[in-house]
Design a protein around this nucleic acid. Structure first.
Length: 317
RNA sequence: AGUUGUGUGUCCGUCC
């Protein structure tokens, strides 16, 4: 059984859902019972693969063999259900959890908070935040970042900045993710210059500034039509050699920007450069180029790209 | 030993 545990958790972490499922079936078939931590890993792997139904079945099996799910089990499933838009199931599970004597913790509330924020239910999210305080739970940086992002995406940038004060009242210092969330909010509000200021501030402060804030600045420049600056910025990213090297999102942002100004050949060039640099385009990357090719009537190239997508398993129908 | 919540790209949808 420990052998299975190690193998399964390895595949789980690698995101190899199929192999993970196979091994799990094989293990249970042989009469071995996965322990709680392994069950949680498996459930999480299913959830992250958007396979919440199988995840729930693992929960069912657990209760059959009398294994008690813990708060982590419930948190994982609540997150999966929210992200799969199964809200009624999520509420149901929350009730089950409480009925089974499992006390919701900070992560439970943060997970639900995120679910509300992502649906733009800001008012309810703020109520959830108050509830969490009433329960004497202590919000951490992730809780605040979730709320910060919700406020920014709802266009409430002023309230987002006010939240910084609330954070310091709770002795929670903003981190790189907080800054990135605010930068993104500023960019989406067409305040790229302010976002860049925040970006520079982060760099001056010596924080670790990874590829994500760079991608946000790049997108901001592209949206402002400053393609020349965007390309210079991109070149600096290439030279960073690892610290904030371009990723699939970086390339997709540029490909899209080039398409929008009608430079499809250059877009194709950058797409090629992405694969040449050893990055594997994802569905969004393919879709971006595909739409550009079709918009320009490049049907032969589009067909060729369709074949590539099929070969990679991105088109299942 | 190993498990859960937060930030960036395309299209579509929802709201205005």
């Amino acid at each position: 059984a420990p052998t299975y545990s190690i193998m399964i958790s390895g595949h789980c972490r690698a995101g190899n859902t199929e192999r993970c499922t196979e091994l799990y079936k094989e293990m249970t078939g042989k009469g071995f019972t996965p322990d709680l931590l392994l069950c949680n890993s498996i459930i999480d792997t299913f959830c992250k693969a958007k396979n919440v139904d199988d995840a729930l079945q693992v929960l069912d099996k657990m209760s059959k063999v009398g294994a008690k799910p813990d708060v982590v089990t419930y948190n994982i499933l609540l997150d999966g259900l929210h992200k799969a838009n199964m809200l009624e199931k999520a509420d149901e599970l929350f009730s089950t959890m409480v009925a089974n004597g499992c006390a919701p913790d900070l992560i439970t509330y943060s997970t639900m908070l995120d679910g509300l924020c992502k649906r733009n239910r800001i008012k309810q999210a703020q109520e959830m935040f108050d509830t969490l305080l009433e329960k004497d739970l202590v919000p951490d940086i992730v809780t605040f970042n979730i709320l910060m992002d919700g406020l920014c995406k709802a266009g409430k940038l002023d309230e987002a900045k006010d939240l910084l004060d609330v954070m310091s009242e709770h002795n929670v210092a903003p981190d790189g993710v907080t800054c990135t969330i605010l930068m993104n909010g500023l960019c989406k509000d067409k305040r790229t210059d302010e976002a860049v200021k925040l970006f520079m501030y982060m760099k001056e402060k010596g924080s670790v500034v990874d590829v994500t804030p760079h991608n946000i600045v790049l997108l901001g420049l592209c949206r402002e039509g400053k393609l020349g600056q965007a390309l210079m910025f991109f070149n600096r990213m290439v030279k960073s050699e690892g610290e904030f090297s371009p990723d699939v999102v970086t390339y997709t942002t540029l490909v899209n920007a080039l398409i929008e100004v009608g430079k499809v050949d250059r877009a194709v060039e950058y797409f090629q450069r992405m694969t040449d640099s050893g990055l594997a385009p994802d569905y969004v990357a393919y879709n971006t180029l595909m739409n550009g090719l079709k918009k320009q009537g490049r049907f032969i190239q589009a067909d060729r790209l369709t074949e590539a997508m099929k070969a990679k398993g991105f088109l299942t129908d």
